[in-house]
């Protein structure tokens, strides 16, 4: 047994140095948030600030309008995540049904669109949302953000659901559960790892989104999100780097919280479900 413990602990010798190197630039970013602009730009390479300052955070709070923008960002991100989870899981479930006519065409179209660069489709998207009268609200922005983000989640859910042993579903059906009930009570709970992943990725994407929240709140800048607010640090020629670093630190915190929260779903897996 001792040898086993030893063998397992050897991995730490590999992982610890790797992680230290890995996190170094990130730590640098955090430390820059506490430095004066002068020290960050022309000071040495030291990670510890000579004279730590909280000015940057104060500036970040006002410049990026964190007080108003944070609520918007949360609303926007959660709306996007819910939209994507609901729409992608239903679609993925449907597409995982064996022998569904038209499935190949749909999946083909989904995959094909993955390769079209999206940045420049913003103008037609804007025209659609404007036509729907959603031009100045976060819902329009959330729809526009969720639409193109669907492909991968749909494929992930499809891959996952088609990998679930069929006897599980048969058992549910014999218990008298219908299509909807099977999906909601049996299949969806099994899909936790995928849901966690999809939620996390779309949360990050929405949290940092720039183009869509900018373009869809033109008439109502009070509805903008942090991703847009961050650009308050850029001027035409110069950038307030330490302020930006502070803002980056603040805006990373919620994502880390969400990550730690969703961690569980990566750990639990479906082992228990298969046995029962």
């Amino acid at each position: 047994m001792n040898r086993l413990v030893l063998r397992r602990n050897i991995w730490h010798l590999l992982l610890i140095p790797l992680c230290l190197v890995w996190i170094y630039p990130f730590v640098w970013m955090v430390s820059a948030a506490f430095k004066t602009p002068r020290e960050m730009l022309i000071g040495g390479l030291s990670l510890l600030p000579d004279e730590a300052t909280l000015d940057n955070f104060a500036r970040a709070w006002t410049t990026a309008k964190f007080s108003t923008y944070t609520a918007n960002t949360i609303t926007f991100s959660i709306a996007v995540v819910i939209l994507v989870l609901l729409v992608a899981s239903t679609a993925g479930y449907a597409l995982a049904r064996p022998g569904l006519p038209g499935k190949k065409v749909l999946v083909g179209v989904l995959i094909a669109t993955m390769f079209v660069p999206h940045g420049y489709t913003i103008i037609p998207t804007f025209i659609v949302v404007n036509g729907l009268g959603l031009g100045n609200g976060l819902l329009g922005a959330a729809l526009a953000q969720a639409g193109p983000a669907l492909v991968v989640p749909v494929l992930l859910f499809m891959g996952f659901f088609s990998g679930i042993p069929k006897e599980l579903e048969e058992a549910a059906r014999m218990d008298g559960a219908g299509y909807l009930r099977t999906y909601w009570r049996v299949m969806l709970p099994l899909a936790k790892p995928v849901m966690g992943t999809v939620a996390l990725m779309n949360f990050i994407g929405a949290w940092n989104a720039f183009f869509i929240p900018l373009v869809f709140t033109l008439g109502n800048p009070d509805l903008r999100t942090l991703g847009v607010g961050m650009y308050g640090f850029y001027g035409q020629d110069t950038t307030d780097w330490t302020g930006l670093a502070a803002a980056a630190c603040i805006s990373v915190v919620p994502i880390v919280v969400v990550f730690l929260f969703l961690q569980r779903t990566f750990v639990e897996g479906i082992a228990g479900a298969v046995k029962s």
């Binding site: 609520a71 949360i74 609303t75 709306a79 509805l223």
Partner: peptide
Amino acid sequence: LAAFACAVTLALSGCNLVGGSP
């Protein structure tokens, strides 16, 4: 939990989701 969080933020941000006249 998610629904709760959502309700809270919706309440916080008023009708921001749908938006209205500027």
